[in-house]
Amino acid sequence: MELYDILFWVLSAIAVSCALGVILSRNPVNSVLFLILTFFAISGHYVLMNAQFLAIVNIIVYAGAIMVLFLFVIMLMNLNADVEPQKGQLVQLAGVISGGILFLVVLASIKTAKAEIMDKTSTDIGLISNLGKVLFKEYVLPFEISSVLFLSAMIGAIVIGKKEEVKTSATAKMEHVSE
């Protein structure tokens, strides 16, 4: 067993157990902390695949920015007690059965799939210069067109987030005139 394999298995064990922790823990704050740990373990996997840039971005953006924001929101909403609503027995049973069936299907497909071992020496696609070249050559269209997506998300922040003025009599009169 090489060092690579040992690292892979350790990281995988951390990732899977922390992911289970996210959904099994009752306290939302614990869930978020487990999710951050999962992101760290996945970043470790990226490093093993020689994709250092992706690993760093994953930590900075997801673990650093987004999850910390999450944590703030949860703490502000004061959800730390287990206040999640309880579902009825029948709903729980239906959920367990359908989820279990889906799990079985995916498990069966992965078990019979032809797993191919990745050649870990030749992948330098994750290095930052190669990533930049790929992003601006082959994937330039999706890269550029995501700007439309972000633009509409920003409009959303303004339309939904900004306070709408209460209708004063003056504006109401103006609208009446314009109609």
Binding site: Y139, L141, P142, I145, S146, V148, L149, S152, A153, I155, G156, V159, I160, E164
Partner: peptide, 26 residues
């Protein structure tokens, strides 16, 4: 002609809809 474009297309289609659905804030 690429699953990546399909994904971005679906997102561009959906996100403005979430906003329009909630546009009547009162």
């Amino acid at each position: 002609n690429n699953l990546l474009m399909m994904f971005i297309g679906i997102e561009i289609l959906s996100i403005p809809q979430y906003i329009l659905a909630g546009s009547d804030k009162r």
